[in-house]
């Protein structure tokens, strides 16, 4: 699989896919997309990078251990649920805040934070699985 073409293209392809995954994640609330899909896209991107260039560069590129990313995502999602605590509403109630930038309304919400948490969990867990399987060559 490690052909020269594939190896040359893979880093660009990966960055494009990660970028796209973030796009899919953020638009998820109003268009098809969301944390699960975005996470899977990013995880596939890392898997492709791993197949093309080996596991070590991927691990360097994402810097954190994939499971740490996953755990961070779970933490973030839980926090998003707990935002409702000081506001005296039940756990996981969506809370909204509207910001205006140059006449464009942006909805910021605990739901968005939750979805980003989902994204991280899926990216972390599945990248970890894929990388762990890919690097089995070395044992």
């Amino acid at each position: 699989m490690r052909t020269v073409i594939f190896r040359t293209v893979a880093p660009y392809l990966t960055s494009l896919m990660v970028l796209f995954s973030i796009f899919v994640l953020l638009r998820g609330h109003n268009e098809p997309g969301g944390g699960f899909i975005g996470g899977l896209i990013a995880a596939s991107a890392f898997a492709i990078y791993g197949i093309a260039c080996g596991v070590a560069p991927v691990r360097r590129a994402i810097y954190f251990h994939p499971m740490a990313i996953s755990a961070f995502g779970l933490f973030m999602s839980s926090i998003a649920g707990m935002i409702s605590l000081p506001l005296s509403v039940p756990f996981m109630t969506g809370n909204w805040m509207q910001l205006s930038f140059f006449g464009v309304d942006i909805d910021l919400s605990s739901v968005l934070i939750f979805d980003i948490g989902v994204y991280f969990v899926v990216v972390g867990a599945i990248t970890s699985i894929a990388l762990a399987l890919e690097e089995r060559d070395r044992d």
């Binding site: 699960f36 899977l40 899926v122 867990a125 599945i126 699985i129």
Partner: peptide
């Protein structure tokens, strides 16, 4: 189904390993 797909994939991976 959306969540089910992701979970069944992770279990598939687990069983595979």
């Amino acid at each position: 189904i959306l969540t089910a797909i992701v979970i069944s994939f992770s279990f598939f991976a687990f069983l595979l390993v």
